[in-house]
Amino acid sequence: MSVLPRIDPMLATPGRLPPPASDDRYAYEVKQDGQRVIAYLPGDGTVLLRARSGADITPAYPELAALGQVLGGRPAVLDGEIVALDEAGRSDFERLQARMGLAGAPAKAARMARTVPAHLMLFDVMFLDGTGLTRAPYTERREALTALRLAGPAWSTPAAITGHGTQALDMSRKAGLEGLIAKRLTSPYAAGVRSRAWIKIRNVRTADVIVGGWVPARGHLTGLPGALLMGQRDPDGTLRYVGSVGTGWNDTERTTLAQLLTTAATDTCPFTDTPPVTGARWVQPRLVAEIRYTTRTRAGRLRHPSWHRLRPDLAPDDIT
């Protein structure tokens, strides 16, 4: 059995497609909508799955246990995304949420695996057969990953194409996918770094925000949130107010949010500047959400925001 190096995931920078003159210098992969994971295969038949935070989430996904046997005695460290697929074969984060957070409840995880199966989409290899590959270019790592032929009942290696970014993005949009990741062919694996060598291109503009407060709804929704007050971290660590969101959720989500907001209640406004909102109630800035929006104002506020989802897989310190 090999002692494997601990490797933090390389992160993509939000942006746009590379310019046409640089198009053939990038590979394009479908952006999966799931939980990022680093898979450690020491070569003894076992597998260890670590989330982006570094937490061991192996017990939450028992259907991935067999991955530890597919390479035999070859030790490896792989990068990928755990997803739950909808009826059309697209990753569906809402479905996956039923599987997340079950690392401490293996019996429940096993039951959920039968009704909401998870699938691991693999897209990089950083260590193989005793050799570190993080300094190797993307093309070399991708060739090594493809040669492993990792295709099984609960894992696969989706294709990547070189160039043709505009066409790939258009196809992803028509297929109802979230977008693309553009990866520079010559780029090494920058562990733990949000790198511009990987560009995250979304078909819908979204932003991860920290919930710092809320405004109660009126009428028959009294006691439930009518709007959430959103923030993002400035470089100095303070929380900057970026607007409020009050549309896009269903009754179940609104009720869940009410419970979480009550638990996180505080008397202190967490924002640098108190938002100009009447009747605001403050919460500890620990809930992370993803918001859809059109553009930003000059002050950095999100225009026409609508609720998308909670992000329990992200920590507030990750949001800028």
Rank of each mutant, 00 (worst) to 15 (best):
M1S: 15
S2C: 13
P5G: 06
T13G: 00
R25T: 11
A27N: 05
A27L: 14
E29N: 00
Q32N: 10
Q32K: 08
G34H: 03
R36I: 10
I38K: 00
T46I: 04
V47M: 06
L49I: 11
A51Q: 06
A51Y: 01
R52S: 08
P62D: 14
E63T: 10
A65D: 15
Q69Y: 00
L71T: 09
G73W: 02
P75E: 05
E81G: 10
I82C: 06
E87K: 13
F93V: 15
E94D: 14
A98C: 07
G104F: 04
A105K: 15
M112E: 13
F123A: 04
F127Q: 08
L133V: 08
Y138E: 13
A144R: 15
A147F: 06
G152D: 14
S156H: 02
A159P: 02
T162W: 07
A168V: 09
A175K: 12
G179C: 05
I181L: 13
A182R: 05
P188C: 10
V193T: 13
S195V: 11
S195Q: 09
I210V: 15
I210R: 07
W214V: 11
V215G: 01
G219P: 07
L224W: 06
P225N: 09
L228K: 03
L229Q: 05
R240P: 03
V242W: 01
T247S: 11
T252N: 10
L257E: 02
A258R: 03
Q259N: 11
T268N: 08
W282V: 05
E290K: 00
R292G: 08
H304G: 01
I319T: 10
